[in-house]
Design a protein around this nucleic acid. Structure first.
Lengths: 223, 223, 223, 223
DNA sequence: CATGAATGAGCTTTCATTCAT
DNA sequence: CATGAATGAAAGCTCATTCAT
């Protein structure tokens, strides 16, 4: 906030209206709301907080959104559709033959790692969004929870699909696909949350690598 | 609530005081608060909601708690200390030799299963508590989040310890212990949440069994 | 209040918003608060009382003042600065030579009278303000008491100054200036309070005259 | 408070009931109330404050007083009747002839001084009582204000009487007795208040001396 | 005589939201 | 397009006071 204030030093009572096209304004509000929600949580964020960041009057927000919740819903819908699009357009799952000399197992794990990277990149693209999904929006509202549920579902289903293909390909053993997919997502979320909570940058590569190994071969020593 | 009201149909405005010892009342309030929070979430629950359930005046609650937050904190502290106690007193980790005829691997997985059961039983004993920890209390407040963080830490550390022992015992391979422990917890939570959200009873046995297999040997087909 | 309501008879629940500029509204609230405080005392006055008088919603008041106390403080600060200004700009103390034929003593008393009139006019301009300062605001709050103390100090210091000048001019004898100034203010306040308490109009002229005589020559018979 | 707590170090949960005769208990409560009211003011003092000081449960107070206000009223009635008694029994006003060699004027002033001492001693006996009368009880309540008014009246009337006698005796000139009496009281109160507010001990002798001189001969230089 | 426990009544305060410009 | 001003509705909270023991 101090940064913002420095950026726009207002002489005592400067109230400069700014004008933007409807679409631009809407977008700007969403950005500010994302920031605010992710920093302080949905409940702790007031309409005023958002409007201050956007440098608009509180009433202005209501020309674009019916509701405080509506802002959050719009935000989540944006994320949702981005994820859906990404899932639909993602690379076909293709597992090439392992190059000679490299054991199949290692090759598979390398493949898993790549998939995990894809997943993490998709869902946890930027920190604010991650925070919003994993923390800020929780418990906001029934409708919101439902949306989060749908987002979860899309992501999990996408993993399920990959798992099924991999089973068909004989790379992955027979298993309870929904269970495993969900477990993966939960595990990754928890690991990601640690970084978030400790305000460390996400090291997607490292996480993916460790997760691939863990989920690829398990924790038991080879007999 | 409707049930309770039917159970005690009172003509219009009967207000009979009930008396309890301080400790009993405090406990009762905590129980009602747990119910309320877990059903509707922390924010959506008002002091009035809790007091209605407890059939007490709102002021009464304030004789036992300074704050709405204080109620939640008390609740979580109760859970926390219960978990800490349980962790400290839990069975020593002892892995007997596998009985003849049974492969070592299977024996280990069976062992893991038992550990998962212990974990799930401990943390997700009753549904209301689970809901509270995983959903209702999230984003309530800085202090609360910190408490939840500590709870998380205790649980994860306990798993880390078991992992380390198992590695020493040669049962589990060398791995990034904190990562794996956290991943486990996240995965289990997510799976548990599904049951919670769909309002199904938790089948701890089944979850533990699947998790043990998954995390024991991974998903890849044996080469 | 009844007058106002009769003046604007509205069928049951007419709630028309009225709009004012921020400054005007603020001022209006202060006026209503002054009325209310002075009539019923600070503690007995609720935010609701003030808002009813101002015909505004309770929340509106909070857009202009952070607090009930803040309203009182604003009121007192207004009075304070008015008094300070008045004290600074007041007539130079000039005592002309006594006209021939008129004894010096009488002339001095006449002068004192004029000063008392000035003082009383300044501080007890309107009844509501007087009530506020002398009764309503007492014991409201530490901050408020401090403000009242400052107000007192300004007034007393102003009298002290005049006394010192008069001593230099040889009109007033050597005396304990702070004591006398304070005694004057106390005496006048007490006398003014009687009028206030009995809800009689203040007769400033008469009070000033009597005070001038009393404090000019004392009560003892001339030897 | 810290002093009290040290005086009665209670081992964790010692709740020792103390028993007293009704009269003793009543008296004790009044003492504690006086302390509390005078320190923090009537409104800022809660029933709990008083009971804590008296080391009794809150409900106990209600066996002796119907009301919070009732406590204050009892307190003031005590003071009132003490003052009335004192006024009635006070020394007859006797002004001896001035000893030879001492001018009459000086003798009169010395007499006035003595009267002021009597007055100050009577009314401002102990600090707590003074505080209560001059500060703490103000604005508490209509009934209370009335009582304070009566107290005021008694005191002022007593002074009026003395003034009248002195006028008859030819010591004091003809003047508006009620005005002067009230002015005296006001002046003295204000001067006493300074000491109170600055938490300095009252120097009754000095105040009386200065007041006697001031009100005896006035401020003007002798012609 | 004493009090722990319970509470009604009422107040301040906060926000999301609306209205009129 | 933008917003200052206004507000309802509801929450949290406090305190003097009362009941049952």
């Amino acid at each position: 906030m101090s940064v913002l204030e420095e950026a726009a030093p207002r002489s005592s009572k400067t109230k400069k209206r700014t004008y933007k096209s409807a679409e631009a304004r809407r977008q700007q509000i969403l950005e500010c709301a994302l920031e605010a929600f992710s920093e302080r949580g949905y409940h702790a964020t007031s309409i005023g907080d958002i409007c201050e960041r956007a440098r608009i009057g509180r009433a202005t927000l209501y020309q674009y959104f019916t509701d405080k919740r509506d802002v959050l819903v719009a935000l989540l819908e944006g994320i949702y559709s981005k994820v859906v699009t990404a899932v639909e357009h993602r690379q076909r799952l293709t597992l090439d033959r392992p190059p000679k000399g490299k054991p199949a197992r290692e090759h598979s794990i390398e493949f898993m790692r790549a998939r995990f990277v894809a997943f993490l990149t998709l869902v946890f693209e930027d920190e604010a969004t991650t925070r919003l999904i994993l923390r800020a929006a929780r418990g906001a509202d029934g409708v919101v929870d439902e949306l989060l549920g749908r987002l979860d579902a899309v992501v999990i289903e996408s993993i399920e699909q990959e798992l099924r293909l991999a089973i068909q390909a004989g790379i992955v053993r027979e298993l309870d696909v929904p269970f495993v997919a969900r477990f993966f997502v939960g595990g990754l979320e928890k690991v990601v949350l640690r970084a978030i909570d400790e305000e460390r940058p996400l090291d997607i590569q490292q996480i993916a690598e460790q997760a691939a190994l863990l989920e690829g071969i398990g924790i038991l020593t080879a007999t």
